[in-house]
Structures are given as C-alpha cells and as structure tokens.
C-alpha cells in the first residue's frame, strides 16, 4: 500500500508533535527518530515501565531490564484510515532481535504504541501487538 505525496510530507510533522509531547509532557528519555519505510517511527524509554507483563508479580518492584525497556511508537493522525495490512507493513519494518523475552522466558511479541494526534493537541497512546498476547489483569 502506498502513501500519497501529501501524506508522506505530513509524517515528519506527526513525528515532531509526538516527540515534543514525549519529551516535555510525558518525561521520556532517549527519544530517537527512525526514518523507516513506510512510516517513520520513534523509540524511547518511558519514566516508568508502561507495559506490565501479566505474568509478572505487580507487587515486586520492576526489574532493571523492565526499567530500561525501549518502546516503539508510531505517530498517526486521528483522521487517518488504518487497515491490518497497513499495520502489518509497519511491524515488518521494525528491526528484528531487539524484542527480548517475556516473563516466561519466551521470545516476546513485537509491540508498539500508536500515538494518535488530534487537532486539539491531544496525543492518545494505544498498544498494538503483532499478534495475540495474554491479556492484562486489572
């Protein structure tokens, strides 16, 4: 699936909006831009782990690895139309080998945060996994 020239020209703006939001509002560190195709992505480390593995005991403090867990972000516009195919293309562009292990010692499913930018400057983050994962217990 191809993007129009106008859509491609808007991608750097979305990246910049989300990067600014992460650094100045959410206090992330090591935020880096990645010029991948079809979509440019961001990676960074949140101040506290944002994803809690359902097999990890929540009463224990997070491990060293969890505190340094790099999260990937895909900045998108609220009015964009998405399809599983478009999402799969983005997952395919993600690098292999950086995904680590889950609490059970298995290879972890790829995940990224969908950073949805709205016109009123709200950025909402949603987890997207490349396949099925065990649901979280509240």
């Amino acid at each position: 699936m191809s993007y129009s020239d106008l859509a491609v020209s808007s991608h750097p703006h979305l990246i910049r909006i989300v990067e600014n939001h992460l650094l100045n509002h959410a206090d992330w560190r090591s935020v880096t831009q990645h010029a991948f195709t079809p979509r440019p992505l961001l990676s960074g480390i949140p101040p506290e782990p944002v994803y809690v593995d359902p097999d990890v005991d929540p009463s224990k403090p997070p491990t060293e690895a969890a505190l340094e867990q790099v999260e990937w972000l895909l900045p998108v516009d609220l009015r964009e139309k998405w399809s599983p195919r478009k999402m799969a293309e983005v997952f395919d562009s993600l690098p292999e080998g950086v995904w680590g292990e889950n609490a059970k010692g298995e290879k972890r499913t790829k995940r990224m945060l969908l950073a949805v930018v709205a016109e009123d400057s709200t950025v909402s983050y949603y987890f997207v996994h490349d396949g099925i994962v065990k649901p979280r217990q509240n």
Partner: peptide, 13 residues
C-alpha cells in the same frame, strides 16, 4: 475555505 480543506487528512489541494 482553508479550514474546510484542512479538515481532511492529508489536507486537500
């Protein structure tokens, strides 16, 4: 007219 064009993503020509 500007706002109408920019209410689409990507905006209209």
């Amino acid at each position: 007219s500007l706002f109408r064009k920019f209410s689409y993503f990507p905006h209209l020509e």
